[in-house]
């Protein structure tokens, strides 16, 4: 992506805040691992490597990586990031969340049709009055193929029950 990081490192003195946040997240994962495996019983097995040993190694490594990340953050070794637009991300995440929440009650077609429409909206197609019905019909066809013919267990809702 950017092989000329070293040039910028001399200009950029301030630590990279995002990198520090990543380091903190890594350390937090390590802490969670330490905490959780400490309650495990080292069962009297015949291997000296017990259920908690490997997780502990991983946690130590994560701490090491967190420290390394902090060092790079201060040296400004992290690559430049492109500006992100968060609007589209919100649309798509909303679509996935809607699908997750609606799946069991509204059934596969309605839930996934909404995901389809909101994803398209994330990419600029905002005519939801049109894309939602299109998505639902498309998903219903897919449901008929996969659940009807192939016996895949895709949750059925009011729409699907018309065909059962």
């Amino acid at each position: 992506m950017s092989r000329d990081n070293n040039k910028t490192s001399t200009e950029q003195r301030r630590p990279d805040r995002a990198a520090l946040a990543i380091a903190a997240a890594l350390a937090a994962i390590a802490a969670v691992i330490f905490l959780d495996v400490s309650r495990l019983r080292e069962m009297a097995g015949y291997s000296q490597v017990g259920p908690a040993t490997v997780p502990n190694w991983i946690a130590f490594a994560l701490i090491g990586l967190a420290i390394w990340t902090v060092v790079e953050a201060f040296r400004g070794d992290f690559p430049e990031r492109e500006k992100q637009q968060f609007g589209p991300v919100v649309w798509i995440v909303a679509g996935l969340a809607a699908q997750m929440l609606l799946l069991t009650t509204a059934g596969f077609s309605i839930a996934t049709g909404i995901l389809f429409a909101l994803t398209a909206a994330g990419f600029g197609k905002r005519k939801l009055w049109m894309t939602i019905p299109v998505g639902i019909v498309l998903c219903l066809v897919i449901w008929l193929i996969f659940a009807g013919l192939l016996q895949l267990s895709l949750p059925a809702g009011p729409l699907e029950h018309l065909f059962l």
Binding site: V141, L144, I145, G148, L149, F163
Partner: peptide, 11 residues
Amino acid sequence: KHFFLASILAG
């Protein structure tokens, strides 16, 4: 696809 649909409807 048509084959699928036809069989589903028939079923």
